[in-house]
């Protein structure tokens, strides 16, 4: 059995006395894709943000690659985060940079020094992997929504992370591009050994990419299992969600 790369323990969070989630527990193993499903506003994105330390929970801990992310500070945290990729729902591309600069930005600031040729090859490879070539000089405003998301994914994978957190990776994309993104998520796992946590509403994405699914309801994990197991759940709400 593969080692656990992400371990979430007793995570609880509330805003102004409104409970977001309580005692969330789950783990992700190496080369495993875990999908989190739930209604809009159930706090799925907040879980991803808590995993990477952008949101601090009221209690609980998140261990990534054996380290408690909340115990890391300053430069240690900055360096550690390079092992984790995060694909934002909006893409969050730097709008004052072109595509090439978006990909180069974090890459150039890594402690490993690379030659310009190496950097160029890495950028070309990442863009090729997401099915985009020859757009290096375009700015985010010149790209369609789907292209922006794919550039954001290229910006994530170019950093060679060990874990990727996907926030709605296929939302707003056409079925063909969605399928390509799903295939890419699988390829990341199978060829590069990357583990993923995927927050999505897209059942096709879940079916294709997830080894395990967590259903988030009323602030807790209501059900957990493979797609086949959850499709036979005694909980009608869970079954309805997966249809």
């Amino acid at each position: 059995m593969q080692e656990e790369v992400v371990t979430v323990k007793n995570l609880s969070k509330s805003y102004n006395n409104d409970l977001v989630w309580e005692n969330i527990n789950f783990s992700v193993r190496r080369m495993e894709n875990v999908a989190i499903l739930g209604k809009s506003g159930a706090g799925k994105t907040q879980i991803l943000r808590a995993i990477i330390g952008l949101t601090k929970p009221d209690k609980g801990s998140v261990n990534i690659l054996g380290k408690n992310i909340y115990a890391l500070k300053g430069e240690t945290l900055i360096n550690f985060r390079r092992k984790i990729g995060y694909l934002f729902q909006s893409g969050a591309l730097y709008d004052f940079m072109n595509v090439k600069e978006n990909l180069l930005f974090a890459l150039e600031r890594q402690p490993i020094k690379r030659s310009e040729t190496e950097l160029r090859k890495m950028i070309e490879k990442a863009l090729y992997q997401v099915g985009l070539t020859g757009i290096e000089d375009k700015t985010p405003t010149e790209l369609s929504g789907g292209m922006r998301k794919r550039v954001a994914l290229a910006r994530t994978i170019v950093l060679l992370p060990e874990i990727i957190l996907y926030d709605e990776p296929t939302t707003g994309l056409d079925p063909i591009t969605s399928r390509e993104i799903n295939e890419l998520i699988i390829e990341m796992r199978d060829k590069l050994g990357i583990s993923s946590v995927i927050v999505t509403h897209d059942i096709d994405c879940v079916k294709m990419t997830a080894n395990r699914i967590l259903i988030l309801d009323k602030g807790t994990i209501a059900e957990e299992g493979t797609f086949a197991e959850l499709a036979k759940s005694s909980n009608t709400w869970v079954r309805a969600f997966l249809e």
Partner: peptide
């Protein structure tokens, strides 16, 4: 305005999670 816009569109978060100060 520029930093505010970057904050709202999660560009600052994107810098943070990619290990950029």
């Amino acid at each position: 305005a520029e930093i505010g816009s970057m904050k709202i569109t999660e560009q600052i978060d994107a810098m943070e999670v990619s290990g950029v100060d």
